[in-house]
Design a protein around this nucleic acid. Structure first.
Lengths: 110, 110
DNA sequence: TTCCTTTATCGTAGTATTGCGATGAATTAG
DNA sequence: CTAATTCATCGCAATACTACGATAAAGGAA
């Protein structure tokens, strides 16, 4: 079919999957890394930073905004983007929790 | 087009994006959580645990194996899957590094 | 006002993903 | 050997993603 059966999974599983999916593209990783590196916020500089057309970058920004990892504010003609601190920390905590479980599987296991 | 321009990004960005993409589905999150919870490895129990057909689960397992997050070994008729400790820790470190940067953007920013 | 800049959105093409039934391969049971 | 079990793969249909050119919307400059 091609449509994910979200109903059958927990809200946490769906949320974490949505966050991971948003991180699942090198361009979006690059955008986030750039926003983290800059002390101030960035707008269309991202387009010149990335090897992608303006329309494509705008689309990636839209996806990151959709899951809440970034937020944007209009500043005159341009738009200022930055990390959404609250959701970013929520994401960090969810990934941290997933990876905090000890891996009990040994070498000889499997 | 529909093909990601991986050439223009760093190896790290592509690797992290690939790992994130693999985590970008609730079924795969559920699989990993189940493998983490079990002290021993699991095989086809996953199929009965998940609300998906056997073929679909097998496909998700294949993707997780492709990025190295899990590994499987044949044990008679069934296959034993478990977390690949080394790659799992690599993934944990990469996500940790991404989220370790301080978010400097303030409330009034943007 | 008109023009330019900046960003978002639309439309399209190509590709990838999701899901499943059907089938195939490998092992075990009898 | 045959039959059953377990899992992978194939093939298909439906949907989602990636990318970009073209266009639209909104503000600033002249």
């Amino acid at each position: 079919m091609g449509i994910t059966k979200t109903q059958h999974f927990t809200g946490e599983q769906n949320r974490l999957a949505a966050l991971a999916k948003a991180l699942g593209h090198p361009a979006r990783i690059a955008i986030l890394q750039h926003l983290l590196k800059q002390q101030a916020c960035i707008c269309g500089d991202l387009v010149s930073e990335l090897p992608l057309a303006q329309a494509t970058v705008s689309q990636h920004l839209k996806e990151l905004k959709a899951v809440g990892l970034i937020k944007g504010t209009v500043e005159g003609t341009s738009v200022c983007y930055c990390i959404d601190k609250q959701n970013w920390e929520e994401a960090r905590d969810m990934f941290l929790q997933l990876f905090s479980s000890p891996v009990t599987c040994q070498e000889n296991c499997c």
